[in-house]
């Protein structure tokens, strides 16, 4: 029983982590049909910015809990800046091109940004463990968990729900859905698709950066963290169905809980869990569990 509960908690924490690192990718793909490899850079820049701001914050005498603001501020700064620069400065020139060219362009941006990251922050790692230390630990079923990781679950729920409600219940969301459904007709109906695209890209970038910014206190912020996230988030998004936010959530839960179970029961196969689930889903339902229907072009 204890083990089962622990698996569930570990699984939920990891699922939330997966959701947070992949939701930005899903948002951008869902609306713009762009598979954004530079998502990994948003994550990494978010983490570095967060570590820098947190470090700066704790050098002052301000109240300790304010450190959390630094995390969200970091995500906003990075997301808005890179979102606007990349979308307005580059991607908009490529919308009329094949989608794989756009993917490759984001791959190129990723390569460039990896090195820009190093030019700004160097190769030495940054630490920002203060927020994690601040929240302390709690005992559940006689096992110690750190509270910060548990808050990740809450954050994932808030972000997931917020995005989903925003998409289905607000006017903006409905405009988005119209654009998703048919870009040209929406334009003809007077929706400003250009603005919709820019806003979506910025929101996706903020989400990507928020993933990194929130994870930063639990890791060593060092070169190469963005690469891992790309593969991981691709897998989650492929499993859940590309561009679907509930899909990303289900995909993250499926992978997260299976992985936790593997770690506790069969640690040898941990590496395979994500690939195995992906293979299974692909074999049975290759468009992903929650993929939106595709119309054939005639």
């Amino acid at each position: 029983m204890q083990e089962l509960i622990v698996i569930l908690i570990d699984g939920l924490v990891f699922s939330s982590y997966l959701f947070m690192v992949s939701v930005g990718l899903t948002v951008i793909f869902g609306v713009m049909k762009i598979l954004n490899v530079a998502h990994g850079s948003f994550y990494a820049f978010g983490a570095y910015m967060s570590a820098t701001l947190i470090g700066a914050y704790y050098n002052t005498d301000l109240p300790e809990f304010g450190g959390f603001l630094a995390i969200f501020l970091a995500a906003l700064i990075i997301g808005v800046f890179f979102g606007i620069v990349l979308e307005r400065g580059l991607l908009r020139f490529l919308y009329h091109r094949d989608e794989h060219i756009i993917v490759l362009a984001t791959f190129a941006m990723f390569l460039v940004l990896e090195d820009v990251l190093m030019m700004i922050w160097g190769t030495d790692p940054y630490y920002a463990y203060e927020p994690m230390a601040l929240l302390g630990a709690v005992d559940i079923v006689e096992l110690t968990f750190d509270v910060y990781s548990l808050t990740l679950i809450g954050l994932a729920v808030i972000v997931g729900l917020g995005l989903w409600l925003g998409l289905t219940r607000t006017k903006w969301g409905k405009l988005l859905l119209a654009v998703i459904f048919d870009r040209e007709i929406s334009q003809a109906m007077g929706i400003n698709v250009t603005v919709v695209f820019t806003v979506t890209f910025v929101v996706g970038a903020i989400m990507g950066a928020l993933g990194g910014a929130y994870i930063a206190p639990t890791i060593s912020v060092s070169p190469g963290i963005g690469v891992e996230v790309i593969v991981l988030s691709f897998a989650v998004v492929v499993i859940g169905g590309m561009g679907s936010i509930p899909g990303a959530m289900i995909g993250a839960l499926l992978v997260g809980i299976s992985r936790a179970a593997a770690v506790h029961k069969f640690p040898e196969i941990e590496l395979f869990v994500i690939y195995a689930i992906m293979a299974l889903v692909l074999a049975i339902r290759p468009e992903g569990l929650f993929a939106p229907a595709q119309a054939r072009k005639i």
Partner: peptide, 8 residues
């Protein structure tokens, strides 16, 4: 980079 389950 994430070791929650392993640590448990």
């Amino acid at each position: 980079g994430q070791y929650g389950a392993e640590i448990s």
